[in-house]
């Protein structure tokens, strides 16, 4: 099923409903009481960057950055390399810490805590708690080579979320079916192709049922003929679940396909944002036009 893109209108097809079940809740429908009861998936602000600055030495990668992502939205970050796109994802995943400013996820400070009315750097435990809402897929897959495919997926749900082995197994099998790799679950990552590894990595991230999925150039390390399979799986997930996606990619057609918003980065700032239609067809900023002219 990974080989075909499910039609958005027909999202009751088996593939689509499967993706709903396994990838964290159905698209919020009015009658979906579970979705409505959860304020985090009702389309309100989920991620906020408040005056975030990040430097590497003298190099200012993010400069006083402000932006927000609403729950359930799919946002694509585009821009030349070195413009700070990946840094945003790494900040959200707490692989980096901001030098200035704050990041909130679902109303909670990510790397800060409020103590006696003051904002202080958060402890490891607080960060871990907030981080559980965030999943990430890396450019280089980063599967654990010492675990077989199934265990790559079940390890974190069992040890971090406290699921039973059986629950985690069921969840992992469903996800492997979603990404079309059921028959490979007893293999080691080294025995899979890059595209297969990346699909396992997607399943592994989804097994934690995160609210936000961060996709960091997930097809850049793949052979060209393997890219489509991975993108199909992601389209499937984007169209059939209400997971929030933050995506750095050079696959512009994919970005156009799944995005609600496209953010153009240049030199650590968002210089323009808008719907994919607007951004790809009629951008305002000359730098955006120049960049898209070069990559499209």
């Amino acid at each position: 099923m990974s080989s075909e893109t499910p039609n958005q209108e027909e999202n009751e097809s088996t593939g689509a409903s499967l993706a709903k079940d396994v990838a964290g809740g159905a698209k919020s429908a009015p009658e979906d009481s579970a979705g409505a009861a959860n304020p985090k998936v009702d389309g309100r602000e989920l991620i906020r960057f408040d005056r975030v600055t990040k430097r590497f030495g003298d190099n200012v990668v993010l400069d006083d950055l402000e932006f927000r992502v609403d729950s359930g939205k799919h946002v694509t970050l585009i821009g030349p390399s070195g413009s700070g796109k990946t840094t945003i994802l790494r900040l959200l995943m707490t692989l980096l810490k901001p030098d200035e400013g704050t990041i909130t996820v679902g109303g909670e400070y990510l790397t800060h805590e409020e103590k006696n009315g003051k904002l202080v750097p958060a402890g490891e435990k607080h960060i871990r708690e907030v981080r559980k809402n965030i999943g990430m897929v890396f450019q280089q897959f980063n599967l654990f080579p010492n675990m077989k495919v199934l265990r790559n997926i079940t390890e974190a749900p069992v040890n971090v979320l406290g699921l039973s082995k059986e629950e985690a197994d069921t969840r992992a099998r469903d996800l492997l079916e979603l990404v079309g790799l059921t028959e490979h679950m007893d293999k080691y990552p080294s025995q899979l192709s890059g595209g297969q590894q990346q699909r396992v990595a997607i399943a592994r991230a989804l097994a934690m049922r995160p609210q936000v999925l961060l996709l960091d150039e997930v097809t850049s390390a793949l052979d060209p003929e393997l890219v489509a399979g991975v993108l199909d799986v992601l389209r499937d997930i984007a169209h059939t679940t209400d997971i929030t996606m933050l995506c750095v990619t050079h696959e512009m057609s994919f970005a156009r396909d799944i995005s609600d918003d496209v953010l153009m980065f240049n030199e650590g700032k968002v210089i323009e944002s808008g719907s994919p239609d607007k951004m790809f067809n009629d951008p305002d900023h000359p730098r955006t036009r120049e960049f898209l002219g070069a990559v499209l």
Binding site: M93, L95, R131, F138, F144, A156, N159, V160, M208
Partner: peptide, 8 residues
């Protein structure tokens, strides 16, 4: 990093 991303 992959371990951190899974909140281990």
């Amino acid at each position: 990093e992959a371990g951190i991303a899974l909140s281990f």
